[in-house]
Nucleic acid binder design. Structure first.
Length: 262
DNA sequence: AATTTTTACAACCGCCGGAGA
DNA sequence: CTCTCCGGCGGTTGTAAAAAT
């Protein structure tokens, strides 16, 4: 059954907004604001639109100080770093990027950044025989600039912008499975990985990260992350290997991030 | 030049949680 | 305490534009 729809779908216009609708909405917002009620707004503003649609249009497009266009390398790094830490919490990520909207960032990640990273993962896999058999041996990127110290402070993983051609050429230990969400139903993205239970209260992160004590090394992905087969038939050792990380480490790491970001 | 495929992004959908009655 | 309403969020879809064939 489900909830009643927020508006009468038969009597609202859908699809792209016309310039006239944009200016109506903008004028109304400039004069009255939302009035605390998006649902009632379209009627007051003389728009044949769903309230949610108005809200979205305003937040993602008409609102002042919205930044459109190319993302900078710094923004790329911040997005990747935060995604690695908290997963697809786009609104939180957007809060760290003034002028960018969650929708924008989500689109950017899905269409460009993910592919960019996949390309790098694949090329790094060509250089190194396989996904690191023991990622614990992979050295963390060294801290350097003020930007990287920011990430060091707020994220279990941070980039070193000075040590990277575009800031993304050596992102992190990441399985390509993790980024490839359309041909492998067992990928960690969007599925429950065993370690998520350890993070349930503060950070439901689809990309797991394991902070190893005395090291800033992270391992992304869950029990499938190092699994090369698409049928989910990973060996038990691959699955259990991440569970040896203390859950308190994950939790405390997560909580400290929340405090800084929210 | 025409057609097909890919890319980019705006918009929609449905679920969830908080606030207030 | 329960219920309802609304805002907010993340995932997904639709489609126009660009690129490839």
């Amino acid at each position: 059954m489900g909830r009643a729809p927020c508006c009468d779908k038969a009597n609202v216009k859908r699809g792209p907004w016309s310039p006239e609708e944009d200016s109506k909405l903008k004028d109304f917002m400039d004069k009255y604001g939302t009035g605390g009620n998006w649902i009632a707004l379209p009627r007051k503003a003389g728009l044949k639109r769903c309230g949610k649609s108005c809200r979205l249009r305003w937040l993602n497009y008409l609102r002042p100080n919205i930044k459109h266009g190319e993302f900078s390398d710094d923004e790329d790094r911040i997005i990747c770093s935060l995604f690695a830490s908290i997963g697809s919490r786009w609104s939180i990520i957007a809060a760290q990027l003034p002028g960018r909207t969650d929708n924008d960032i989500k689109n950017y990640w899905n269409t460009k950044l993910k592919k960019k990273l996949m390309g790098m993962v694949q090329s790094s896999q060509r250089n190194t025989p396989t996904f690191p058999i023991n990622p614990l041996l992979t050295p963390p990127p060294p801290p350097s600039s003020s930007l990287s110290s920011l990430y060091k402070d707020c994220s279990p993983y941070y980039y070193d912008p000075t040590n990277s051609m575009n800031g993304l050429d050596q992102p992190f230990s990441m399985s390509s499975n993790l980024l490839n969400d359309n041909n492998n139903s067992t990928t960690c993205l969007g599925t429950n990985c065993s370690l998520l239970q350890a993070q349930e209260s503060s950070m439901l992160c689809p990309m797991q990260y394991y902070k190893v004590k005395d090291s800033s090394l992270l391992m992304f992905g869950g029990d499938q992350a190092s699994c090369s087969s698409s049928d989910g038939s990973c060996s038990q050792s691959q699955i259990s290997y991440g569970k040896e990380i203390k859950q308190e480490d994950i939790r405390s790491s997560s909580e400290s991030h929340d405090l800084k970001w929210v």
